[in-house]
Amino acid sequence: MYPDELQYTSEHEWVRTPGEQEGSVRIGITHYAQDALGDIVYVSLPEVGDVVEAGTTCGELESTKSVSDIYAPVSGEVVGRNETLDATPELVNNDPYGGGWLFEVVPSDRTELDELMDAPAYLLTIES
């Protein structure tokens, strides 16, 4: 349910290294987050070329229950976004670690990746 090869944030985002673009990481939300949100009906993502800062809001997920912010797990330039989510936002619910990914960033400070949690540490945060 929480793949070991990913890293996690306390805001329930995951980071996969490497991403598809050279030097990038891929970002999405965890199963826990999509389950808590309910059926996602709209996704607002940062644009390619945007610069995001770790820990700051860079998008939104709108569900039938509420609107939730997306936080950047690392600082850097957005180099890709999942355009498929415009037409099929439910992919975030159905496949949060695959087709429901959100965006890719080339980190400006790769040491920020060292501050992210592994799967066991993330599990402790959601179980407490």
Rank of each mutant, 00 (worst) to 15 (best):
E83S: 11
C58D: 01
L124A: 15
Y8M: 09
Y42P: 12
V79C: 08
A33P: 15
Y97Q: 06
P73E: 00
P89A: 01
Q34G: 13
Y71K: 15
L91A: 08
P3S: 00
R16E: 11
D39E: 15
L116A: 06
V51Q: 12
A54W: 06
G98E: 00
C58E: 02
T125A: 08
I27Q: 11
E112A: 09
V15C: 08
V78E: 02
D50Y: 05
Q21T: 14
Y97W: 06
Y122D: 07
Q34K: 15
E112N: 12
P96A: 02
G59V: 07
G23F: 11
T88G: 00
G49M: 05
V41S: 07
G100M: 07
H12Q: 10
V74I: 10
T64R: 11
E5D: 14
V41M: 06
Y32E: 09
S10A: 14
G55F: 04
E90R: 15
G76H: 06
E13I: 12
Q21P: 11
E83Q: 10
R26T: 13
P46Y: 02
A119S: 15
V105H: 05
P96W: 03
Y42C: 04
G28F: 08
V67H: 03
E22N: 14
R81G: 03
L37C: 12
E127C: 10
E11K: 15
Q21M: 12
L45G: 06
G98Y: 01
V78D: 04
T88L: 11
V48E: 13
P107C: 04
I70K: 12
G49E: 04
P96F: 01
E83V: 05
E53D: 12
D35L: 14
G38W: 07
L91C: 02
C58W: 03
D50K: 08
L37G: 13
Y2C: 00
E53M: 10
P120F: 00
H12S: 09
D118Y: 02
V105S: 05
E13G: 10
S24C: 12
Y71R: 14
G55K: 11
E104W: 04
L91T: 03
V51A: 07
T57F: 00
V52E: 03
E127M: 15
G76N: 07
Y71P: 12
D4V: 06
Q7E: 02
G98L: 05
D69P: 14
M117P: 13
N93R: 10
A121N: 09
A119R: 09
L6V: 07
I27G: 10
Y97C: 03
G80T: 04
D118K: 08
L123Q: 15
Y42D: 09
G19L: 08
I40Y: 09
P18K: 11
L116T: 06
R16T: 02
T84Q: 11
P3V: 00
R110C: 00
E20H: 13
V74F: 04
L116K: 08
V48M: 06
I126M: 10
W101D: 02
T125N: 10
E90G: 13
Y2F: 13
P89T: 05
D114Q: 13
C58H: 04
R81A: 00
E77F: 01
S68F: 06
A54C: 05
S75F: 03
Y71Q: 10
V52M: 05
S44M: 09
P89D: 02
S63D: 06
N94D: 15
D114G: 07
V15F: 07
E60L: 14
K65E: 02
S128P: 11
S108C: 07
Y122P: 13
T111V: 11
E127P: 14
S68W: 07
V15I: 12
V43W: 05
L102C: 08
